Computed example of a mutant assay.
Amino acid sequence: MGKMRTQSVRWRAVAVLASALLVGSVAACGNSDTGGGGGSTDDGKITMGFSQVGAESGWRTANTTSIKESAAAAGIELKFDDAQQKQENQIKAIRNYIQQKVDVIAFSPVVESGWDTVLKEAKDAGIPVILTDRSVDSADKTLYKTFLGSDFVKEGRLAGEWLVEQKKTASGPVNIVELQGNTGAAPANDRKKGFGEAIAANPNLKIIASQPGDFTRAGGKQVMEQFLKANPKIDVLFAHNDDMGLGALEAITAAGKVPGKDITIITVDAVKDGMQALADGKFNFIAECSPLLGPQLMDLAKKVHAGEEVPPRIETEETTFTQEQAKEALPNRKY
């Protein structure tokens, strides 16, 4: 009998201890929630999953460097993936980030369409998504928190307006060829739209050929070679980025023409190699598209992770460059 009473006392002691531990556990969770950590019991460090388009250009390389350096400076753990220009790779990377339960997902979409399903998966998992550099065409704007990047239509329009001003005294047709970016990509679609709208002001300005060069130097060179063979008279080249323009320079020179003189060259980006070509007179005009989005991205990541409201679209500050302006800017150019 004494033995049974002893066991009973022990069981009651265990029950009291278990109850105390349970209360303590609930209190700890309550403290975590009120502390704004979203129920997390880790050290509070934010983890970001980022899927990059690829490494197709000098602009993209500078963009990747900015993101990696800014994440380290902000104390954000970065899980980085290179999609190598394939949408299926980006979708796979985003799903991996969801499984890993990262705090924030950011990516630069290869193309505009086809994201609704995976973005809904992230939303259902409670993981905020930030679009960088390129947008998506999803009708449901709640699938992502914000878009950080450039106004590509404006870039194309600025390029076109400069050309309209330069050719306002032209009495005959001005033949333009266009090197587009990746088919379906936001910057390719929008820069083409903005440029086309601007040059409509002068009926003499006509785009006689337009083809994707995939934002690469090799693509720019190859397509420009085709343009030159098919069109004996080309007055202007509009390239959707510097790298395609730089590739086109090789084709133009090989064809016995002088870039910047025989053919007016307009590009977008203003990376260092493009700026050098402009300063040297091989390019004639560049509309800037800054790749240095890292600091703004990390600031946004902290805000959306904390549940703060952010604007649905945040544009980067950019400008345009003529030859003289390029010469002035080059010594301090960071990319």
Score class of each variant (00 low, 15 high):
residue 204 N to K: 14
residue 130 I to K: 10
residue 152 F to M: 11
residue 147 F to L: 09
residue 238 F to E: 02
residue 248 A to S: 07
residue 188 A to G: 14
residue 115 W to L: 08
residue 123 K to L: 08
residue 222 Q to R: 14
residue 213 G to T: 04
residue 252 I to T: 06
residue 145 K to L: 04
residue 240 H to K: 04
residue 187 P to E: 04
residue 207 I to D: 04
residue 199 I to A: 00
residue 235 D to H: 12
residue 160 G to I: 00
residue 236 V to G: 07
residue 218 A to K: 14
residue 190 D to N: 15
residue 251 A to K: 02
residue 129 V to T: 10
residue 133 D to H: 10
residue 218 A to M: 12
residue 207 I to N: 05
residue 176 I to Y: 01
residue 168 K to G: 01
residue 225 E to Y: 01
residue 252 I to F: 01
residue 112 E to G: 11
residue 117 T to H: 02
residue 115 W to Y: 12
residue 138 S to Q: 14
residue 162 W to L: 01
residue 125 A to K: 03
residue 115 W to G: 07
residue 191 R to L: 06
residue 237 L to D: 05
residue 231 N to Y: 13
residue 143 L to D: 12
residue 175 N to K: 15
residue 119 L to S: 05
residue 123 K to P: 06
residue 151 D to Y: 04
residue 131 L to W: 07
residue 153 V to L: 09
residue 221 K to Y: 04
residue 180 Q to C: 01
residue 140 D to S: 11
residue 233 K to V: 13
residue 238 F to A: 08
residue 234 I to K: 08
residue 146 T to F: 04
residue 177 V to A: 03
residue 139 A to G: 12
residue 141 K to F: 09
residue 193 K to T: 11
residue 116 D to V: 10
residue 146 T to S: 12
residue 183 T to K: 15
residue 214 D to P: 00
residue 219 G to A: 05
residue 136 V to N: 11
residue 242 D to W: 12
residue 155 E to G: 06
residue 210 S to A: 10
residue 133 D to I: 08
residue 184 G to N: 13
residue 246 L to V: 04
residue 208 I to R: 08
residue 122 A to H: 03
residue 235 D to I: 08
residue 250 E to N: 10
residue 154 K to N: 13
residue 207 I to Q: 07
residue 219 G to C: 05
residue 145 K to N: 13
residue 137 D to I: 10
residue 130 I to Q: 05
residue 164 V to S: 01
residue 218 A to Q: 15
residue 191 R to A: 06
residue 177 V to L: 07
residue 237 L to F: 12
residue 152 F to C: 11
residue 117 T to R: 14
residue 126 G to M: 07
residue 120 K to T: 14
residue 143 L to P: 13
residue 158 L to F: 08
residue 176 I to R: 07
residue 157 R to M: 13
residue 200 A to K: 15
residue 121 E to M: 00
residue 164 V to P: 00
residue 201 A to P: 03
residue 166 Q to G: 02
residue 253 T to S: 13
residue 247 G to Q: 03
residue 160 G to Q: 02
residue 168 K to A: 11
residue 250 E to W: 02
residue 180 Q to E: 14
residue 191 R to T: 00
residue 189 N to V: 14
residue 253 T to I: 11
residue 138 S to G: 12
residue 166 Q to N: 06
residue 119 L to R: 12
residue 205 L to E: 01
residue 197 E to L: 03
residue 213 G to I: 00
residue 112 E to D: 14
residue 128 P to C: 02
residue 154 K to L: 14
residue 230 A to L: 11
residue 243 D to I: 08
residue 198 A to Q: 05
residue 173 P to L: 05
residue 215 F to C: 02
residue 186 A to P: 08
residue 232 P to V: 02
residue 130 I to M: 09
residue 126 G to Q: 09
residue 230 A to C: 11
residue 209 A to E: 01
